[in-house]
Protein backbone atom coordinates (compact mmCIF):
# COMPACT_ATOMS: atom_id res chain seq x y z
CA UNK A 1 0.00 0.00 0.00
CA UNK A 2 1.29 3.43 -0.85
CA UNK A 3 -0.02 6.92 -0.19
CA UNK A 4 0.72 9.95 -2.30
CA UNK A 5 1.98 13.23 -0.86
CA UNK A 6 1.48 16.26 -3.04
CA UNK A 7 5.05 17.50 -2.74
CA UNK A 8 8.45 16.48 -4.05
CA UNK A 9 11.01 14.93 -1.72
CA UNK A 10 13.28 17.75 -2.88
CA UNK A 11 11.88 20.86 -4.57
CA UNK A 12 12.37 21.53 -8.29
CA UNK A 13 11.97 25.06 -9.59
CA UNK A 14 13.61 25.61 -12.97
CA UNK A 15 12.95 28.97 -14.58
CA UNK A 16 14.92 28.54 -17.84
CA UNK A 17 13.84 25.68 -20.13
CA UNK A 18 16.61 23.71 -21.81
CA UNK A 19 15.45 20.78 -23.98
CA UNK A 20 19.01 19.54 -24.59
CA UNK A 21 19.53 19.00 -20.85
CA UNK A 22 16.08 17.38 -20.64
CA UNK A 23 17.20 14.87 -23.28
CA UNK A 24 20.22 13.93 -21.15
CA UNK A 25 18.48 13.93 -17.75
CA UNK A 26 15.56 11.74 -18.89
CA UNK A 27 18.01 8.83 -18.74
CA UNK A 28 17.61 8.94 -14.97
CA UNK A 29 13.87 8.45 -15.50
CA UNK A 30 13.87 5.41 -17.78
CA UNK A 31 17.51 4.72 -18.69
CA UNK A 32 19.67 1.71 -17.73
CA UNK A 33 20.62 3.09 -14.30
CA UNK A 34 17.61 5.33 -13.80
CA UNK A 35 15.11 5.66 -10.98
CA UNK A 36 12.44 3.51 -12.61
CA UNK A 37 14.79 0.54 -12.76
CA UNK A 38 15.96 1.25 -9.22
CA UNK A 39 12.48 1.29 -7.70
CA UNK A 40 11.31 -1.78 -9.64
CA UNK A 41 14.52 -3.67 -8.75
CA UNK A 42 14.25 -3.16 -4.98
CA UNK A 43 10.48 -3.49 -4.72
CA UNK A 44 10.66 -6.77 -6.69
CA UNK A 45 13.63 -8.21 -4.82
CA UNK A 46 12.21 -7.77 -1.32
CA UNK A 47 10.00 -10.88 -1.36
CA UNK A 48 12.98 -13.19 -0.95
CA UNK A 49 14.73 -11.01 1.63
CA UNK A 50 15.82 -13.43 4.37
CA UNK A 51 15.68 -11.12 7.39
CA UNK A 52 13.81 -8.10 8.74
CA UNK A 53 16.63 -5.68 7.96
CA UNK A 54 16.92 -6.57 4.28
CA UNK A 55 13.13 -6.52 3.75
CA UNK A 56 12.87 -3.09 5.40
CA UNK A 57 15.81 -1.57 3.52
CA UNK A 58 14.53 -2.84 0.15
CA UNK A 59 11.01 -1.57 0.84
CA UNK A 60 12.00 1.84 2.14
CA UNK A 61 14.70 2.56 -0.45
CA UNK A 62 12.40 1.23 -3.20
CA UNK A 63 9.78 3.70 -2.00
CA UNK A 64 12.25 6.59 -1.98
CA UNK A 65 13.26 5.72 -5.56
CA UNK A 66 9.64 6.30 -6.59
CA UNK A 67 9.95 9.78 -5.10
CA UNK A 68 13.17 10.26 -7.07
CA UNK A 69 11.42 9.16 -10.25
CA UNK A 70 8.97 11.99 -9.66
CA UNK A 71 11.77 14.52 -9.08
CA UNK A 72 13.49 13.56 -12.36
CA UNK A 73 10.18 13.78 -14.22
CA UNK A 74 9.56 17.24 -12.74
CA UNK A 75 13.01 18.36 -13.92
CA UNK A 76 12.43 17.07 -17.48
CA UNK A 77 8.94 18.58 -17.53
CA UNK A 78 10.13 22.01 -16.41
CA UNK A 79 13.07 21.96 -18.84
CA UNK A 80 10.69 21.40 -21.77
CA UNK A 81 8.11 24.11 -21.08
CA UNK A 82 7.02 26.61 -23.72
CA UNK A 83 9.37 25.39 -26.44
CA UNK A 84 9.27 26.86 -29.93
CA UNK A 85 9.71 24.62 -33.00
CA UNK A 86 13.05 26.36 -33.62
CA UNK A 87 14.31 25.56 -30.11
CA UNK A 88 13.26 21.92 -30.53
CA UNK A 89 15.16 21.59 -33.80
CA UNK A 90 18.28 23.37 -32.61
CA UNK A 91 18.55 21.49 -29.32
CA UNK A 92 18.49 17.92 -30.58
CA UNK A 93 15.14 17.31 -28.85
CA UNK A 94 13.38 16.74 -32.18
CA UNK A 95 13.53 12.93 -32.19
CA UNK A 96 11.89 12.64 -28.76
CA UNK A 97 9.40 15.40 -29.61
CA UNK A 98 8.29 13.54 -32.73
CA UNK A 99 7.02 10.57 -30.71
CA UNK A 100 6.10 12.16 -27.37
CA UNK A 101 5.70 15.94 -27.87
CA UNK A 102 6.70 17.08 -24.36
CA UNK A 103 5.10 14.17 -22.52
CA UNK A 104 7.15 12.15 -20.03
CA UNK A 105 8.07 8.67 -21.28
CA UNK A 106 10.69 6.31 -19.83
CA UNK A 107 13.67 6.01 -22.13
CA UNK A 108 17.43 6.42 -21.95
CA UNK A 109 19.21 9.55 -23.16
CA UNK A 110 20.03 7.62 -26.32
CA UNK A 111 16.38 6.74 -26.99
CA UNK A 112 16.22 3.13 -25.79
CA UNK A 113 12.89 2.41 -24.07
CA UNK A 114 12.89 1.40 -20.41
CA UNK A 115 13.44 -2.32 -20.03
CA UNK A 116 13.13 -4.65 -17.05
CA UNK A 117 16.14 -6.50 -18.47
CA UNK A 118 18.25 -3.67 -17.04
CA UNK A 119 17.86 -5.13 -13.55
CA UNK A 120 17.64 -8.52 -11.90
CA UNK A 121 15.66 -10.21 -9.20
CA UNK A 122 17.51 -13.47 -8.81
CA UNK A 123 15.77 -14.78 -5.70
CA UNK A 124 19.19 -15.06 -4.04
CA UNK A 125 19.51 -12.25 -1.48
CA UNK A 126 23.33 -12.20 -1.49
CA UNK A 127 23.33 -11.82 -5.26
CA UNK A 128 20.51 -9.27 -5.26
CA UNK A 129 22.02 -7.08 -2.54
CA UNK A 130 25.38 -7.16 -4.32
CA UNK A 131 23.63 -5.98 -7.49
CA UNK A 132 21.97 -3.23 -5.47
CA UNK A 133 25.35 -1.92 -4.31
CA UNK A 134 26.50 -1.75 -7.93
CA UNK A 135 23.21 -0.15 -9.01
CA UNK A 136 23.64 2.71 -6.54
CA UNK A 137 27.17 3.36 -7.79
CA UNK A 138 26.05 3.24 -11.45
CA UNK A 139 23.34 5.79 -10.71
CA UNK A 140 25.87 7.93 -8.84
CA UNK A 141 28.21 7.84 -11.84
CA UNK A 142 25.35 8.88 -14.13
CA UNK A 143 24.56 11.85 -11.89
CA UNK A 144 28.27 12.73 -11.86
CA UNK A 145 28.27 12.63 -15.67
CA UNK A 146 25.20 14.87 -15.83
CA UNK A 147 26.55 17.34 -13.27
CA UNK A 148 29.71 17.80 -15.36
CA UNK A 149 27.53 19.13 -18.19
CA UNK A 150 25.13 21.29 -16.21
CA UNK A 151 25.84 24.94 -15.43
CA UNK A 152 22.33 26.04 -14.41
CA UNK A 153 22.26 25.91 -10.57
CA UNK A 154 18.49 25.41 -10.55
CA UNK A 155 19.01 22.14 -12.45
CA UNK A 156 22.20 21.04 -10.70
CA UNK A 157 20.77 21.56 -7.19
CA UNK A 158 18.16 18.76 -7.21
CA UNK A 159 20.55 16.49 -9.14
CA UNK A 160 23.15 16.94 -6.39
CA UNK A 161 20.55 15.91 -3.83
CA UNK A 162 19.74 12.78 -5.87
CA UNK A 163 23.43 11.97 -6.23
CA UNK A 164 23.93 12.16 -2.47
CA UNK A 165 21.05 9.79 -1.88
CA UNK A 166 22.77 7.15 -4.03
CA UNK A 167 25.71 7.30 -1.63
CA UNK A 168 23.44 6.92 1.43
CA UNK A 169 21.58 4.01 -0.18
CA UNK A 170 24.90 2.32 -0.98
CA UNK A 171 25.74 2.53 2.72
CA UNK A 172 22.40 1.07 3.83
CA UNK A 173 22.60 -1.76 1.28
CA UNK A 174 26.09 -2.58 2.53
CA UNK A 175 24.70 -2.86 6.05
CA UNK A 176 21.79 -5.00 4.82
CA UNK A 177 24.19 -7.35 3.00
CA UNK A 178 26.31 -7.64 6.12
CA UNK A 179 23.25 -8.43 8.23
CA UNK A 180 22.35 -11.26 5.83
CA UNK A 181 25.88 -12.63 5.88
CA UNK A 182 25.98 -12.52 9.68
CA UNK A 183 23.02 -14.91 9.71
CA UNK A 184 25.00 -17.38 7.55
CA UNK A 185 28.02 -19.60 8.05
CA UNK A 186 31.06 -17.33 7.71
CA UNK A 187 33.10 -20.25 6.35
CA UNK A 188 30.81 -20.47 3.32
CA UNK A 189 28.20 -17.78 2.67
CA UNK A 190 27.21 -19.65 -0.47
CA UNK A 191 26.51 -23.07 1.05
CA UNK A 192 22.83 -22.52 0.33
CA UNK A 193 20.47 -19.82 -0.91
CA UNK A 194 18.81 -18.26 2.16
CA UNK A 195 15.97 -17.03 -0.04
CA UNK A 196 15.11 -20.54 -1.29
CA UNK A 197 16.80 -23.47 0.45
CA UNK A 198 16.35 -22.27 4.00
CA UNK A 199 14.12 -19.22 4.05
CA UNK A 200 14.01 -17.46 7.39
CA UNK A 201 10.69 -16.36 8.74
CA UNK A 202 11.29 -14.63 12.02
CA UNK A 203 8.69 -12.65 13.86
CA UNK A 204 9.25 -8.94 14.27
CA UNK A 205 10.11 -9.05 17.97
CA UNK A 206 12.80 -11.72 18.10
Amino acid sequence: MWHYEKRLEYPVKITTPNPQLAQYIMSQYGGPDGEMGASMRYLSQRYTAPNRTAAAVLTDIGTEELAHLEIVAAIVHQLTRNLTPEEIQKSGFGAYYTDHTTGIWPQSAGGYPFSASEFQSTGDPITDLTEDLAAEMKARTTYDNLLRLIKDPEVADPLRFLREREVVHFQRFGEALRSVQEDLDAKNFFAFNPGFDAPVSCNSCD
Binding site: E5, R7, L8, E9, Y10, P11, T53, A56, V57, D60, I61, E64, V168, R172, E175, A176, S179
Partner: peptide
Protein backbone atom coordinates in the same frame (compact mmCIF):
# COMPACT_ATOMS: atom_id res chain seq x y z
CA UNK B 1 7.61 20.07 5.80
CA UNK B 2 10.26 19.06 3.25
CA UNK B 3 13.03 19.44 5.82
CA UNK B 4 11.47 17.56 8.71
CA UNK B 5 10.06 14.86 6.40
CA UNK B 6 13.50 14.27 4.94
CA UNK B 7 15.05 14.15 8.41
CA UNK B 8 12.46 11.62 9.59
CA UNK B 9 12.81 9.55 6.43
CA UNK B 10 16.62 9.43 6.47
CA UNK B 11 16.65 8.42 10.14
CA UNK B 12 14.07 5.76 9.34
CA UNK B 13 16.44 4.22 6.79
CA UNK B 14 19.20 4.31 9.40
CA UNK B 15 16.91 2.61 11.91
CA UNK B 16 16.24 -0.18 9.41
CA UNK B 17 19.86 -1.26 9.90
Amino acid sequence: INEVSFAAYDIMLYLDT
